[in-house]
Simulated scan of single mutants.
Amino acid sequence: MLCYYCAMLTIGLTGGIATGKSSVAAFLAELGAEVIDADQLARDAVAPGTASLQRIVELFGQQALQPDGSLNRQAVRELVFNEPDRRQQLEAILHPAIKELALQQIEQARIRGSRVVVYMAPLLIEAKATDRVDEIWVVTVRPEVQLERLMARDGCSRPQAEQIIAAQMPLAEKERFGVVVIDNSSSLEETRHQVEAAWQQRIGS
């Protein structure tokens, strides 16, 4: 349990696609945590004019850009989906840039006197970014629930959803890293109860 007067606790919140990480992060924010979203940092890292965006254009060409000069995420996603080598090249550009922004924001939260920071990062484990956090919380769901939610959210077919999920680290493997595992298979109210119980156990009132 975190002592109120002790150092800030940084929680790494992760999980698979369509498991409900944002919902859990919102519940944690209601309890008083400051949330840092790695997906937003990833967008900031490749904003027009950044060195990271320029390197991506050098790697993939002008097809990586939208007409307004911003990153064409869908095009890049398609370019690397079945190309492990190109995916690694992309990650070698993105991950260091995201890490720098994440560490800056975590330090700023520390300076502000934040008690608990939640670093929400879908690829926290895969990107070997666990050293940025004090403990890991994993959001999981039953496989069929994940599949149905992904299809409903993204409007993709079942085979497409299965392919997307299969390309990720299995949820069961991620769960092994978690000090806390939140099962978001049921209602949001049930998930809220789990989050509140975990907060009480790990952090206190």
Rank of each mutant, 00 (worst) to 15 (best):
residue 66 Q to C: 10
residue 67 P to V: 02
residue 79 L to D: 02
residue 70 S to P: 00
residue 101 L to R: 15
residue 65 L to W: 05
residue 84 P to W: 10
residue 69 G to V: 04
residue 85 D to I: 08
residue 97 A to T: 11
residue 88 Q to R: 14
residue 62 Q to R: 06
residue 64 A to T: 03
residue 98 I to E: 01
residue 97 A to M: 10
residue 100 E to S: 15
residue 65 L to Y: 07
residue 74 Q to L: 08
residue 87 R to D: 00
residue 75 A to C: 09
residue 102 A to T: 03
residue 90 L to A: 06
residue 97 A to P: 01
residue 86 R to F: 01
residue 91 E to Q: 15
residue 99 K to F: 12
residue 69 G to E: 06
residue 73 R to F: 08
residue 88 Q to S: 11
residue 75 A to Q: 12
residue 90 L to K: 06
residue 89 Q to V: 08
residue 95 H to K: 14
residue 99 K to A: 14
residue 63 Q to E: 06
residue 68 D to A: 07
residue 72 N to S: 13
residue 71 L to G: 00
residue 89 Q to N: 13
residue 96 P to F: 09
residue 99 K to L: 14
residue 70 S to N: 11
residue 82 N to L: 06
residue 67 P to M: 02
residue 96 P to V: 09
residue 74 Q to W: 04
residue 74 Q to K: 12
residue 86 R to Y: 03
residue 97 A to E: 01
residue 73 R to C: 07
residue 75 A to G: 05
residue 103 L to H: 15
residue 96 P to K: 14
residue 102 A to P: 00
residue 73 R to P: 07
residue 70 S to Q: 12
residue 63 Q to W: 01
residue 67 P to A: 03
residue 86 R to W: 01
residue 79 L to E: 11
residue 98 I to S: 00
residue 89 Q to P: 10
residue 94 L to I: 15
residue 89 Q to I: 10
residue 70 S to F: 00
residue 83 E to N: 14
residue 95 H to N: 14
residue 68 D to P: 08
residue 101 L to G: 09
residue 76 V to D: 01
residue 90 L to Y: 01
residue 98 I to A: 02
residue 88 Q to A: 14
residue 63 Q to F: 01
residue 77 R to C: 05
residue 98 I to D: 01
residue 84 P to F: 08
residue 76 V to A: 02
residue 85 D to H: 10
residue 93 I to S: 13
residue 73 R to I: 09
residue 69 G to I: 03
residue 88 Q to T: 10
residue 92 A to P: 13
residue 64 A to S: 10
residue 76 V to N: 04
residue 81 F to Y: 07
residue 71 L to T: 00
residue 75 A to H: 02
